[in-house]
Design a protein around this nucleic acid. Structure first.
Length: 391
RNA sequence: CGGGGAGUGGCGCAGUCUGGUAGCGCACCCGGCUGGGGGCCGGGCGGUCGCAGGUUCAAAUCCUGUCUCCCCGACCA
């Protein structure tokens, strides 16, 4: 079980922000469902049998579960509310804790028994509608992934125990990953598990095996999102039905879509860290700017740093100000550990040269300095332009 | 569930084999110096050695039991 400390949580919440914007953009409506739930709906869908499902009882002996996903809950609500084809389609989502009794949690936040997931659920009158909602999500997920700055693949996935008729997974390549991705020259990508099943093989050997005659590569990756076509897998047992134009009662077609902010954070660390620490993609960084002040309080250089900090704050720049009483080396080393995209330094040299030193974290590259005596508006404009150039 | 490893100041570890005053580095506190790459000097605080029982004059150390954590595998929505 893991606690997110302040800087890490800022990163997590930046991922959440990106995901929320893209979900809203395809018509998703945010809500919140409970983690602690009655066992009854899980009995109806048969998922009460899953070993990874935490089960418990309250003081009266009523059976409860801790939700591992929210199909049961959301479908129950939809079954109560939706009566007509006029109520469809619907996309509902939330960011909520998931609880899973994993046989072996591992690798930090990569596989944990408790984690936050954005899970959305689409509800349609027929298969064609479901496919449409599914495609909307593919677009939204592609945009989310691109915005995180991660290298990623969308691959054909395994429907697994979710049941249903189709699935894709979003995979972020990194050595710490638990899954293998098959990549062909023509751009086909799939979870190696799926390929093994299709070929009926236990192991894949890129040197020997061929994908439709093509050679392929295997790459380690983290699964950061997955989407499933569920069909009527949940609407049937939970009674989620609607009346069509002819008065016929029909089951609602569903799909579900998950994404794990924690895994995106972990993948970003893995993909971009160097020997000096983390190097966040700009869209995920806890702060855009890390301002290092050198010199003791009361010195002119510190006054200049304080003034710059005030300017940045007033200008709406997300800035972390290191005004600790610590050595220069320690401050620089910590800035590189934390990994904000741009580091500004103000010290005695700045007063002599009239310049604010600028370092780009990715590659630890020195960038052209900013003028210490620039008008605030001009300084902020220049700084934003610099930030916009960063990955 | 199978296999392996570890529990000793806040963190990382040594000490356990061969029982005899609990130690090191970092961190922390105080004073001073230093002030553009984890700096220096001096002085300090802090530990029922995971827990329970046993052997012994004496247990971090030996014996028995137990709890927890980590790694590999199986599993994995």
């Amino acid at each position: 079980m893991w606690t997110w400390l302040p800087a890490g949580w800022r990163v997590h919440q930046r991922v959440v922000g990106i995901v929320r914007e893209e979900m809203d953009a395809i018509g998703g409506q945010e809500m919140l469902m409970p983690v602690l739930q009655p066992a009854e709906p899980w009995r109806k869908t048969g998922r009460i049998e899953i070993e990874e499902l935490f089960k418990l009882a309250d003081r009266k002996g009523s059976e409860l579960v801790l939700a591992m996903t929210h199909e049961e809950a959301v479908t129950t609500h939809v079954a109560q509310v939706v009566r007509s084809y006029r109520d469809l389609p619907l996309i509902l989502y939330h960011f909520q804790v998931k609880e899973r009794d994993e046989p072996r949690p591992r690798a930090g936040v990569l596989r944990t028994r408790e984690f936050v997931m954005k899970d959305s659920y689409s509800f349609d009158r027929d298969q064609a509608g479901m496919d449409e909602r599914y495609q909307l999500h593919v677009g939204a997920y592609d945009r989310m992934m691109a915005r995180t700055g991660l290298r990623f693949y969308r691959v054909e996935g395994d429907v697994g125990m979710m049941g249903g008729t189709g699935a894709h997974e979003y995979m972020a390549p990194c050595a710490a990953g638990e899954d293998d991705v098959v990549l062909t020259e023509s751009g086909y990508a799939a979870n190696a598990e799926v390929v093994r099943a299709q070929l009926g093989k236990e192991q894949l050997d890129p040197a020997v095996d061929r994908m439709g005659g093509e050679s392929f590569e295997l790459e380690k990756a983290i699964e950061i999102g997955n989407i499933f076509k569920l069909g009527t897998r949940y609407s049937e047992p939970l009674g989620a039905r609607y009346l069509d134009e002819h008065g016929a009662e029909l089951p609602i077609w569903m799909a579900c879509y998950g994404i794990g902010p924690a895994r995106i954070v972990a993948a970003a660390v893995e993909q971009y860290a160097d020997e000096h620490g983390i190097s966040w993609p700009r869209s995920l960084a806890p702060f855009q700017v890390h301002l290092v002040a050198l010199g003791k309080p009361g010195t002119p250089e510190r006054d200049a740093a304080d003034a710059l900090y005030a300017t940045l704050l007033a200008g709406g720049v997300e800035v972390l100000y290191d005004d600790r009483d610590a050595g220069t080396g320690e401050k620089f080393a910590d800035a590189e550990l934390l990994g904000c995209p741009l580091r500004l330094t103000v010290g005695r040299r700045s007063l002599e040269s009239g310049e604010i030193e600028v370092q780009v974290r990715r590659g630890r590259a020195e960038a052209p300095a900013l003028r210490l005596d620039a008008e605030p508006r001009q300084l902020l404009a220049e700084l934003r332009a610099r930030l916009d150039e960063l990955p």
